[in-house]
Design a protein around this nucleic acid. Structure first.
Lengths: 205, 205
DNA sequence: GTCTATAACGTGATAGAC
DNA sequence: GTCTATCACGTTATAGAC
């Protein structure tokens, strides 16, 4: 073997630790010592590889955004699926990603509070949504009177609200329903099929 | 005048400054010096009145939770309004409160990440929701077959998701739609009447 | 590349004059 | 009650040996 597996290199170990802790505690709440300990390395190595806490954070944030929006963009702009199929895929995609990584949305949205303009740019969020095939298909459905008129932003807020909000509020939801993590995840699996049905009801009834 | 107006007392000035900054930057991201400056007083006074950053934070958090859940609880448990009326009032109540205080949900939910158990207790969230008149009315509607069966938690996630999520994600929403704060608030006003209609569609169509 | 030791700095908190 | 000055400590970052 000429090289180590990427995941075991020191650099990757630090990045993985940093990702976990930054996403859980946010930038200000994270100490570089925690990252070093989580990575099983010495604190000095963090600065050796990444120069500073801030640069490491920017790297993690950029990768998180990139990784999260890339797959969504591919669904939004897939010309080979119709409107309803896209809804199903988007909901499924989000629920799978957030089940695997429940802290991601609140991490992104918390940090967004403090650096809105700059992070919005990085997400490329305008291109992903406003000019997407998906939104065009929604407008086509409305024009053809196959669905009732609705503003694109209202539609998006409904779909993302129903899908993403439960993850953001999961401690609250679990408290309200007296359920544990497993039961919560089961509910979210149910929502994969329920949300597209509900959205269709909103658009047609 | 025997007493100063409450809002102008030094103690209140510090509390108001602390509320603004804690809610915007979170506990870890806030420096006591920022609070002092925002309040227009000296740093030492903060400790004179509130003993420590942590005690001041606990006070702000407790009051934020209390203030936020008290009015909701009164709607959830009002025996004089029917099911549909409660939906309208809850949505309206949330949208009004969050329009006035948009940082509140992400503040609470971010800090909840780090102290779930303890904050859940303070909210009294179990009593507010699970045993509320509102949820009982939902179950009655289902039993009487006036609405289709739906799990209470799914129902709550939908209602809160549609209502609260846009505020949490507002920088993202504004970026997506290329809209400013005023247009965003107009959309939220529209949602006051739209969301109850959408929820009804989900329950009956 | 990796470590130990430490410098440099920021932040929460307090002492003490007024 | 309010201020200035300062302490005590924790954290980021670096120097330097290996």
């Amino acid at each position: 073997m000429a090289k180590e597996a990427k995941d075991n290199s020191t650099e990757e170990k630090i990045k993985n630790a940093a990702r976990r802790i930054f996403q859980q505690k946010g930038y200000a709440g994270t100490r570089t010592r925690d990252i070093a300990e989580e990575a099983g390395i010495n604190l000095a190595l963090l600065n050796y590889y990444f120069r500073s806490k801030e640069r490491l954070f920017d790297l993690i944030m950029t990768e998180s955004l990139e990784e999260f929006f890339r797959s969504l963009r591919s669904v939004f702009d897939d010309p080979s699926t119709d409107f309803e199929e896209k809804i199903r895929r988007i909901v499924e995609n989000y629920i799978d990603k957030l089940t695997a990584n429940p802290n991601l949305p609140i991490f992104i949205l918390s940090e967004l509070r403090n650096h809105p303009e700059e992070l919005i740019k990085k997400t490329g969020v305008k291109k992903v949504f406003l000019n997407s095939v998906f939104i065009q298909q929604l407008e086509d459905e409305i024009a053809a009177k196959r669905v009732k008129p609705i503003k694109s932003l209202h539609f998006i807020m409904n779909m993302l609200g129903m899908t993403v909000f439960p993850f953001i509020a999961s401690p609250m939801i679990k408290g309200m329903g007296n359920i544990d993590q497993t039961e919560f995840e089961n509910l979210m699996q149910e929502r994969k099929t329920l949300i597209p049905v509900w959205i269709k009801m909103i658009l047609t009834s």
